[in-house]
Design a protein around this nucleic acid. Structure first.
Lengths: 228, 228
DNA sequence: ATCTTTCCCACCTAGGTGTGAACC
DNA sequence: ATGGTTCACACCTAGGTGGGAAAG
C-alpha cells in the first residue's frame, strides 16, 4: 500500500536524532554557536540597528541543542530582556549610562509580547537536535508593526534569551537560557565606528563596503591605481 | 511572571483558527488555489522542467484547507503519482504515447520515497487553516540527489497528490487529495512553445523574456529603435 | 540524422547592507 | 546648535528563469 510509504516519510523525521540524546531532559544542553565572533563585538559593546520595518541581527543568534526527547514536540522562542534600567549615550568614544529607561516599550506587552517564535516551531526534539538552530530571520524594530518583529527601545541594552517549550497536551516550560556574549544596545544608527567595521568585515550582505575598504585600506590612499 | 508571557505566545498560534473549522474531520475540505491558471496550462498539456539540482514547479501548488481540528498536529505531504504507464513524445505539435514506462524510478523508493514534506510540518490544524498552504519550494529532479528533491522520470506524466497526516501519539492518515488540473509531463526542456509562452507570461522569475517579447511582439521587428 | 540532456549565461526577483543627506 | 531618526540609494547576497550551444 502507498500509505506505508507516506507514514515512513514522516517517521524519518524522527529517526535522524533518535539514537543520540537522552529521553530525559535532565541532560539538556544549549550552546551558543559563533561564540568567538560574538565576543569580538561584545568586547567593544555590541550594537544592533532597529528600523521601522525591522532589521536582522548580526551576528546571528545560533544554538546547538542536545538532550531533548527526540519524539516530543517543542517550540523555540526568543525574547529580549532589558539588561539594565538605563538609557545609554555614546560620548567621546564610549558608552555611558544617561538616565533611567523610559517606562514604555522595553519589548514587553506588544503583539506577541516581544517574543519571537522560531519558524520551525513546533517540531520534534529530533529536528531541533539534528542541526544548529538559527535565528537569522528575527527582525528588530522601534515601531509597532504588523507582527513578527521584535519591538525594542533605541539606546537601551538588551540580552537575548532563548526558551524551549514542550508543546505536549499541556504546555510546559523546559528551559530558559541566555548568553552574556550576545548583549547589545539597540540603535537607529551605529555609534561606534569599530562596530561598523566589524559588521562590514563579517556580514556578507555588507560586502560592498568591505570591498571599498580593501581597495583603499588607509582611508586616503592613492585615488585609483589601475589594476591592469 | 515572565513565563506566562511566553506560554501565551505559544497559545496565540492556536487561537487564530480556533473558531472556524469543525473539530471533527468529517468536514475536511481542500481546495486548489489558482485553479484558472492551472487550467490554462492543462488545456495544452502542462510540462515541468526537471534538472540535476532540482527545478521548482510553475504554477505553484497551493491549497486552502479547512475542517481540521485546530489544536491537533498535522503534517502536509506531497507526492507525484504516475498518471499512466506511458512514455510520451512531442511530435508535430502534440503529445503522443510512445511505449510503456521504464521500470526504474517513477518517483518511488528513493530517499523520502518521492515524498515532499511541507516545511511548515508538523504544525497545528490552526496553522494550516489560517492561510493557503504553498508548495513553492518543492524541486523536481531527474537525478538521485542529496535529498529534499522529488525524483521523476523525464517524458512521463504525473499527478501531484496531497496528503494530510495527523501526527498524534500514533500516526494516522487523514486525507489524500489530488487535482486533475495539476497533471504535467516531466521534461528536460520545454517541448510545446505555447507552454513556454505561458510560463514566461505568468512566472515573475522569467520576466526577462517577457520584456523581450513585449518590446518586440512580432518576433522580428526592427533591430533596435532608440528610446531617447 | 534525430532526439534528449547538460551546461553556462544574461537577466530577472527578492531582499539584506551601511551611507549620507535630510528631517525633526 | 545638538542629538537622534528617517529615507532613498548603490551595492551586495542568494537564487529562480528560459535561451542556446554543445554534448551524449
Amino acid at each position: 500500500r502507498r500509505m506505508s510509504r507516506l507514514l515512513s516519510a514522516v517517521e524519518n523525521e524522527l529517526q535522524a536524532g533518535r539514537e543520540k540524546g537522552d529521553p530525559t531532559e535532565r541532560e539538556l544542553k544549549v550552546t551558543l554557536e559563533d561564540a568567538e565572533l560574538w565576543t569580538k563585538f561584545q568586547s567593544i559593546t555590541n550594537e544592533m540597528i532597529v528600523t521601522k520595518n525591522g532589521r536582522r541581527m548580526f551576528p546571528v543568534l545560533k544554538v546547538s541543542v542536545s538532550g531533548l526527547d527526540p519524539s516530543s514536540m517543542y517550540s523555540l522562542l526568543l525574547d529580549f530582556v532589558p539588561a539594565d534600567g538605563c538609557r545609554w549615550k555614546f560620548v567621546n568614544g564610549e558608552w555611558v549610562a544617561a538616565g533611567r529607561a523610559e517606562g514604555r516599550g522595553h519589548g514587553e506587552g506588544r503583539g506577541h509580547g516581544g517574543v519571537y517564535i522560531h519558524p520551525d516551531s513546533p517540531n520534534f526534539g529530533a529536528h531541533w537536535m539534528k542541526a544548529a538552530v538559527t535565528f537569522n530571520k528575527v527582525k528588530l524594530t522601534n515601531k509597532v508593526n504588523a507582527g513578527g518583529q521584535i519591538l525594542l527601545s533605541s539606546l537601551h541594552k538588551y540580552e537575548p534569551q532563548l526558551h524551549i517549550v514542550c508543546v505536549g497536551s499541556r504546555h510546559r516550560l523546559v528551559s530558559n537560557v541566555s548568553f552574556k556574549e550576545t548583549q547589545f544596545i539597540a540603535v537607529t544608527a551605529y555609534q561606534n565606528e569599530e562596530i561598523t567595521s566589524l559588521k562590514i568585515k563579517y556580514n556578507p550582505f555588507a560586502k560592498a563596503f568591505l570591498d571599498a575598504k580593501e581597495r583603499n585600506p588607509g582611508g586616503r590612499g592613492l585615488p585609483e591605481s589601475s589594476e591592469s
